[in-house]
Design a protein around this nucleic acid. Structure first.
Lengths: 195, 195
DNA sequence: CGTCTATTTGAATGTACTCAAAAGCGGTGG
DNA sequence: CCACCGCTTTTGAGTACATTCAAATAGACG
């Protein structure tokens, strides 16, 4: 399946488009690729695109006042990623988006997105729905961080991202679940031998 | 300003409605009130409404496997609240919504909401936008939990919810920022005397 | 006014972090 | 294709932030 079929398929889960609408939509997309470790967005910049990953893997992260990275999300194929704060406000954000491996995306500019809302109202629905789903995930993740131990969060992560565990270095898994790489290493050891 | 003007005003920040549309919308709302400590939603139930608070204050929270409460959100006047997971999936949720004080809301049923999407597409836009804003807040809160100390989170909370600090018992502030009530008490003491 | 819950205070404990150093692994260049 | 270099992961010892448990005090509602 080519990239445009992939994204139309993704959208087709939630809304129906005529062939003309689908063509119009795909004509607005800009292919963007990134090499391993390349940044497609940096803190301080204004996020002008939503990225739909067709192959590879991206991660969104911030760097705090003490220089520590915190992974907000990973984006495997079929996922959207952006710095939502910056994309919505069109102000400089604090998020980096980086390729974990060679990655291809289809980028939808903020302008194109707003044009879609006007021309094809079903896109309001589409982005409403995926935003709702994303909200539910983040709420659950927040609750997990408030209520679970690091070990439970790690086990959750392994189940949830079973397909990705080999694309993602342990260091970044640690950053996602909110522990230091050292402590994650110790947890893995414990899970292997003690249990 | 009466309750219906309040909610129309809230919506008017993001979309424009004709008078007929506004009337139609308000006709779908059901007033729901709750006494202090009353639950308007319990874990295990299916969430059938989004609640718009017109007076008083609600809180959404879960209870974890060890019996500890975790506050997901507070809803002061002019805020919407629901168990998003349950509302979207129409499956039993794990969230309680409780009144912190005598509270009035306007409740929009899931059915009515879906009817609105069909009849007045601007509502797709409205709920897309407020969901986007909510997503940005939760992402930021997650990052705060990953990167800030308890003391910093508490100070953030005080700034953010300056107007509510007297409606909300310390116990629930503690639960929101992710510390025990005992530790919050010690932090307050420290902030008063040492700094 | 009385009871129930929330808050404060203190001492002991634990989970996860910091710092340091060694071992492992992967990508890149020769 | 191999060897080296740099980054990641592991391991260990000491530490700190926040929790747990217990008990006293304060406060709020009916």
């Amino acid at each position: 399946m080519d990239n445009k079929s992939l994204i139309l398929n993704n959208i087709g889960k939630w809304i129906n488009l005529t062939e003309a609408e689908a063509d119009h939509f795909t004509s607005l997309l800009k292919p963007v690729t990134a090499k391993r470790k390349e940044l497609i967005l940096e803190a301080g910049e204004i996020c002008r695109y939503s990225y739909f990953v067709t192959s590879g893997c991206l991660r969104g992260y911030t760097i705090d006042a003490n220089g520590f990275e915190h992974v907000l999300n990973f984006a495997a194929p079929n996922w959207w990623i952006a710095d939502m704060y910056s994309l919505l406000s069109q102000r400089p954000g604090n998020t980096y988006i980086q390729a974990l491996e060679p990655t291809s995306t289809l980028a939808l500019s903020k302008d194109a997105q707003e044009r879609l809302y006007r021309e094809i109202p079903a896109f309001e629905r589409f982005f409403r729905i995926i935003t709702e789903n994303s909200l539910v995930s983040f709420q659950q993740r927040l609750l997990d961080n408030l209520s679970l131990t690091a070990e439970e969060r790690y086990q959750n992560f392994c189940k949830r991202y079973a397909g990705l565990t080999d694309s993602i270095p342990a260091k970044q898994v640690a950053s996602y679940i909110g522990v230091t790489p050292e402590f994650l290493s110790k947890m893995k050891h414990k899970l292997l031998y003690k249990k």
